[in-house]
Design a protein around this nucleic acid. Sequence first.
DNA 1: AACCTGACTTCGG
DNA 2: TCCGAAGCCAGGT
Length: 111
Amino acid sequence: MNRLQDDESFSRRVKDVIKCIPYGKVATYGQVASVAGNYRAARQVAWILHSSSEKDNLPWHRVINRKGEISLQPGCGFEKQKQLLEKEGVKFDRRGRIDLERFLWNPENGI
DNA sequence: AACCTGACTTCGG
DNA sequence: TCCGAAGCCAGGT
C-alpha cells in the first residue's frame, strides 16, 4: 500500500469528512485528520476550516479540540459555535467543555 | 526556496 | 488537573 492516498488532495478529503459528521455529534481536529488519511495533520484541518468553512458550507462548528473545548477565541466565533452546538443538543459543562464520551462522533459506526 | 503562522496533539513535570 | 515544550502539516509571504 502506498502512503499516498488517492489523487484527491488532503484538503479536499478533510472537507468531505467534515460533511459526514452527523447532527448532534462532534469530532476533534485530529480525528478528522486521521479519517482523512493523516492523523498528524490536525493543525492543517484547523487551517482549512479557517480558510474555507463558510464558502464550502461545512458544519465547522462540529469540530473541536481534544479537550472537548471550542478552540475559537471569545469574540471570534466562540459564542456562535457554542450556540450552534447547543441547538443540536450538545451539552457543555460548567467549564465550557463537551463530554466526548457521549458526543464524540464514531466514524466506524457512523454514529 | 526559506521562514512564519495556526480553530492541534501528545508527553513530561 | 494545569502548564510548557516539542512535533507535524500545508498555505502565505
